[in-house]
């Protein structure tokens, strides 16, 4: 068995093991590493880990235009439902339409300055068009 300076076994030399065993050993290794950190750093790591564990895999953060957020909050309150469920309810149809190419993002895409994304979407144009379309339909 290889041992490092602290008398701990090296984790790197494991052969192929059961994923559950690997996961528990990984956790043990992380605990050992954290135990060597200064107290403030250790507590920061612990908080970070707790926050990450609380995060649900189906949760995403969305930046919504302020007016849209207000409208959604208003609707959710009026209907007495959670806002996240209301958004999920409203999204099913356009997601299907986009997947089946019944609608397209063409015309709304603008160049993005961010290296992570190729384009941004012109949400103001989309809001104006939807509002205009509604007015036309009512009249």
């Amino acid at each position: 068995m290889n041992r490092n300076t602290k008398g701990l076994t090296s984790f790197e030399e494991l052969p192929v093991v059961d994923p559950a065993v690997e996961s528990l050993l990984g956790q043990g290794k992380r605990r050992q590493d954290e135990a060597r950190l200064p107290r403030t750093e250790r507590s920061r790591k612990k908080k970070e880990r707790e926050r990450a564990e609380k995060r649900k895999p189906n949760r995403i953060n969305l930046d919504l235009p302020v007016d849209l957020k207000k409208r959604l909050e208003h609707l959710a309150k009026k209907e007495g439902v959670p806002i996240s469920q209301l958004v999920a309810f409203l999204l099913y149809e356009p997601v299907n339409q986009l997947e089946s190419q019944a609608i397209s993002l063409w015309g709304y895409k603008t160049a993005s300055g961010c290296p992570k994304f190729e384009c941004n979407l012109d949400l103001k144009r989309r809001a104006d068009e939807v509002a205009h379309h509604d007015v036309a339909r009512k009249s």
Binding site: M1, E13, L14, P15, V16, V17, D18, V21, L25, G28
Partner: peptide, 12 residues
């Protein structure tokens, strides 16, 4: 557990 995993691999 590491010792077992190093010796017996997937059998653990």
């Amino acid at each position: 557990l590491i010792h077992l995993a190093q010796t017996f691999g997937k059998l653990v």
